[in-house]
Computed example of a mutant assay.
Amino acid sequence: MLVLAVHGSPAPGAGRTTARLVQGLDRPTLVGHLDVQRPSLADVLARHPGAVVVPLLLGEGYHRRVDIPAIARRFHCTVTAGLAGEPAVARAVHERLLEAGGPGDAIVVAGAGSTWPGGVDGTRAVTRELSRAHPNLPVVDAYCSAAHPSVPDRVAQLRAAGFRRITIATHLLAPGRFTRVLEETGGVHAVSAPIADHPLIARLVLNRYESVRPEVLAA
């Protein structure tokens, strides 16, 4: 059984976005939440011991390194790698940016943020990939919480440098508190949509699952 471990959000759009991802997987999949929503990941795994857990997370912070593995061990489940740093994530972010109207004259790659060592490496990886795609534009990272610089600070820096068509490339999975922060940021030309329901993310999740499934079946 494939179980997606997601953060969870009270925003109605979050559940709908995750549901579209599950539909794109085209195989039996359950969703367990780490916060806010139900069912919890622990509840799902208690009913499906031995499942394969794919963390639907873009960073390598507390949830990915501590929380999810601890819950999975209780129910003899296998946890795959997360999604951070994968080229498919950068491509999905880039395509969403193009759908939002293109890069403008400067790009801010906006991630959730983390205080954990390496917790923002995924956002930095996307920033590097978008810099390669747009070598003549400034492409910089920024964060919604727990890391610096903040998104408003980055936008203010770029505007002070004379840029006026600043676009935010959203390195987030689903609508929620952080996407609202991005949409309310002043002085930007466009904000791209989150990426959980992008087909590239579905393909990456399936690849994660298939990478450990032979080991699970042989156990």
Rank of each mutant, 00 (worst) to 15 (best):
G82K: 02
R208I: 09
P135T: 00
W116V: 12
F75E: 05
P87A: 08
S40E: 02
G13D: 12
P10G: 12
L21M: 07
G111I: 05
L97I: 12
L25D: 11
L34F: 03
V181N: 04
P28T: 10
G186I: 01
I107K: 00
A14W: 12
G82D: 04
S9Q: 11
L158S: 09
P149Q: 08
A218F: 10
L137S: 03
E99D: 15
S211K: 09
R16Q: 15
A42K: 14
V52K: 02
P87V: 04
L173N: 00
L98D: 08
S9V: 04
D35H: 11
T185C: 12
A190C: 04
A146Y: 00
S131C: 05
T179C: 02
R73E: 15
V212W: 11
S40R: 13
A14R: 03
I107V: 15
Q37S: 14
P152Y: 00
V6Q: 10
P175C: 01
G122N: 09
R159T: 05
R27C: 13
D141P: 13
L97G: 03
T179N: 04
T29P: 02
R177W: 13
H48A: 14
P149G: 09
A161L: 13
A70S: 14
P149I: 08
V205Y: 06
A147M: 06
R165N: 10
A160V: 09
A88I: 01
P117F: 11
G186W: 00
A190E: 02
E210K: 13
L98R: 14
L57G: 04
L45E: 03
A169Q: 02
V22H: 05
A90D: 01
T29Y: 05
Q157H: 13
V22P: 00
R124A: 12
P69N: 11
V66H: 14
P39T: 10
G85E: 05
A147F: 05
H171F: 13
A46F: 01
L4A: 08
P152S: 07
V140A: 10
A84H: 14
R27D: 09
A219P: 04
E183T: 10
A46Q: 11
S131D: 03
A133L: 15
G13H: 10
G187H: 03
A51N: 05
V54F: 10
G187F: 08
G82A: 02
A84E: 12
V188S: 02
R128F: 04
T167M: 01
G104L: 03
P117L: 09
S145P: 01
V155C: 06
R208N: 07
R16V: 15
R164T: 15
P10Q: 09
L25M: 11
R96C: 05
F163V: 00
A81E: 15
L41E: 03
R27N: 09
T115P: 05
Y62S: 07
S150V: 08
